[in-house]
């Protein structure tokens, strides 16, 4: 495997409290962020994801452990060395953090001015970036005159100005509406593809991970509880936190009229089991339920379902009712054919 772009090696962050025990924000984090990929860190607020992200450009420092970015030990860098590393790492923010006193192109020029780029080279570079994010017509406007999506485009162009190898995204779409979110995510994807830029983003929205991240790490109370390729984590979530994030993102929830009468155990001979079936990989498009009915004579009652794409691979999720009496047999049949099943409850 290629060298990771970012490597967290046993990173712990403690905040000393006056007269009490320390608050541990991050606990022994080991995580490799692959080169050229989009990796998402998902967690609730206060889980430590923001602290983790800020270690990559030295805005936060580990209490112990190492953070290696492009072969530099960021946690140990100070002064000029740290500022040099920071110029190789771009960052975008939830609230954009644009200078109100500067126009679009002047905002994009700021990191170039800071890096001491020759004044004659700044204007053409800013113009090129403005065009890259589709804001040429707005180049001389001030942030107050832009929409949220346009502001974030300026943020992205600014983050790319010094030609970084890594882009950090701090909840970049959390303040945007769904349409704008999609456009900004598409832009990030295009940048990742065209420039081969490694993107590390934090979010509390599983939809963002689903839409653009090839890899994901789930963080809970300062610990990484699950990590891997997005498709694998989505299809076989191992941790309760991951599952709760997935609810409502991967397709389906039990319809209200069923959820209202669900029980923990079957009652009566004609009780139905409510089962969630997940279709992954090669089997996502197989007509397995039709075969269950045709080959085993089990009637399947479809309650809810969806098939979507995660990392360009099909991912299906169905909630069905099966006769409780034939549950074990049906589950065995489906699992045998590579589907995942989970009994959610019983009705009737």
């Amino acid at each position: 495997m290629a060298e990771p772009a970012i490597s967290f090696q046993g990173v712990t962050r403690r905040y000393p409290q006056k007269g009490g025990s320390d608050v541990v924000a991050l606990h022994d984090i080991w995580l490799d962020v692959p080169q050229g990929a989009i990796t998402g860190i998902i967690g609730r607020s206060g889980a430590g994801k923001s602290t983790l992200l800020r270690m990559v450009n030295g805005l936060e420092r580990p209490s112990s452990g190492k953070v290696i970015v492009n072969d530099h030990d960021v946690g140990a860098a100070t002064g000029t060395a740290l500022r040099r590393v920071r110029r190789e790492v771009g960052m975008i923010f939830q609230h954009f953090n644009l200078l109100a006193s500067r126009t679009v192109s002047e905002n994009i020029a700021l990191p170039l001015e800071i890096a001491g780029v020759d004044a004659a080279k700044i204007a053409p570079r800013a113009a090129e970036l403005t065009e890259r994010v589709g804001l040429t017509a707005q180049a001389n406007r001030y942030p107050a005159e832009l929409s949220g999506g346009q502001k974030q485009r300026v943020g992205i162009a600014r983050a790319l100005a010094t030609g970084p190898r890594v882009l950090l995204s701090d909840e970049a779409t959390s303040a945007l509406d769904p349409d704008t979110t999609r456009q900004v995510l598409e832009l990030l994807q295009a940048i990742n593809r065209d420039l081969g830029l490694t993107i590390l983003l934090i979010t509390h929205e599983m939809a963002v991970v689903r839409d653009i991240c090839s890899h994901v790490a789930v963080i809970e109370a300062g610990r990484i509880v699950e990590t891997g390729e997005t498709y694998d984590v989505f299809s076989k979530p191992a941790h309760a936190t991951t599952r709760s994030f997935l609810t409502g993102v991967t397709g389906v929830a039990v319809p209200q009229f069923v959820a209202g009468q669900m029980r923990e155990a079957p009652q009566g001979a004609d009780a139905q089991a409510v089962v969630q079936i997940t279709f992954i990989g090669a089997h996502a498009t197989d007509p397995m339920l039709a075969r269950l009915t045709a080959e085993r004579g089990v009637g399947v009652n479809i309650l809810a379902g969806a098939i979507e794409e995660i990392g360009a691979r099909p991912f299906g999720s169905l909630i069905v009712g099966l006769p409780a009496a034939r549950l074990d047999e049906s589950q065995a049949f489906l699992e045998e054919h590579g589907l995942l099943t989970e009994v959610l409850g019983y009705v009737g």
Partner: peptide, 13 residues
């Protein structure tokens, strides 16, 4: 806004 200071620090200012 403190966010602007953070953004500038992140640029290596």
């Amino acid at each position: 806004d403190a966010g602007l200071i953070e953004a500038a620090r992140a640029m290596g200012a």
